[in-house]
């Protein structure tokens, strides 16, 4: 097995381990809460949570949850610019993680029929990268120029923006180096609508492009892996926690509505029946 593959595999194990520890720690923290005000043994709590989760799979409740989660309607109400920023972050993260990273890893293990030169794959990854950069630009503009809403900038905010910038910029650089090193023809490369023009601009430089591709690949991988490892310990953990909170509160709101309706029905009943019942 080539040493690069071994090193990547080991890094992957470490990162997934760090991620899993953070995730397990947070789930253990969550399950220290009461189940609707009751103290229950661990497994009963887990059962209680599962019982609640299934309530989301119900027509209007599910629709409301999905619209709030995937389209982030409530953020749109807060302002178009911040919605645009967040929706670009959100979807670029989803695409780059599930298509660009996990998809490619599965393809390299022969589990998916994808290559980096597939037009859709090249286009989607470049597009998601552009979305992420656009989002970073809006975030910086809002934080440092508009100074909108921002109360405090913590170290983790800077770390996350730097990590995202490293991942996306190294991704484009990697794509350019690959296109140059592999001398990809224009009709194949053009779907990388950022990477390809960049490769045309850089192609004149007298560099060992195979070596450069390998070096940039490590920068990209270490950046990406750092992000994944840091996720459960940073505010980005809301990516995992928010859908649960949104689902729980959507279900609760529906339940309140239902109880109010039932109460209204009760009061319509004849008085003696109500009092005796």
């Amino acid at each position: 097995m080539p040493s690069k593959t071994v090193a990547f595999f080991m890094l992957e194990i470490v990162v997934l381990g760090v991620f899993a520890i953070g995730l397990i720690g947070s789930v253990a923290f969550w399950l220290q809460g009461s189940a609707g005000g009751r103290r229950l043994p661990f497994w009963d709590k887990a059962w209680h949570v599962l019982g609640r989760v299934k309530l989301i799979f119900h027509g209007a409740t599910l629709r409301e949850f999905l619209l709030d989660w995937l389209l982030q309607r409530r953020l749109l109400a807060a302002g178009r610019l911040r919605w645009l920023m967040h929706i670009c972050f959100f979807w670029s993260f989803i695409i780059l993680f599930f298509v660009g990273s996990v998809g490619l890893m599965l393809a390299e293990r022969g589990l998916l029929p994808i290559t980096k030169d597939d037009p859709w794959f090249a286009f989607v990854n470049d597009f998601a990268g552009a979305m992420a950069l656009f989002a970073v630009a809006i975030a910086l503009y809002r934080r440092f120029i508009l100074k909108e809403n921002v109360v405090k900038t913590f170290a983790e905010d800077i770390v996350l923006v730097v990590l995202l910038a490293v991942i996306v910029l190294s991704g484009y650089a990697l794509e350019s180096a690959r296109l140059i090193a592999h001398q990809a023809p224009g009709h194949v490369a053009r779907y990388s609508f950022v990477g390809y023009p960049l490769s045309l601009a850089l192609r004149g430089a007298s560099l060992d492009w195979w070596g450069a591709e390998s070096a940039i690949w490590w920068v990209h991988v270490v950046g990406g892996m750092s992000f994944v490892a840091y996720l459960p310990y940073s505010k980005m953990f809301h990516l995992i926690a928010t859908p649960f909170a949104l689902a729980a509160n959507t279900v609760e709101a529906r339940k309140r509505e239902y109880v109010t309706q039932q109460r209204h029905k009760d009061t319509e009943r004849p008085r003696n029946v109500v009092l005796d019942g």
Partner: peptide, 18 residues
């Protein structure tokens, strides 16, 4: 004093400052 949902909500805050 805190339900499971509330402890999840603590992690669901994205510090957007809205």
């Amino acid at each position: 004093n805190f339900t499971i949902k509330q402890l999840i909500e603590l992690d669901a805050c994205s510090k957007c400052y809205e």
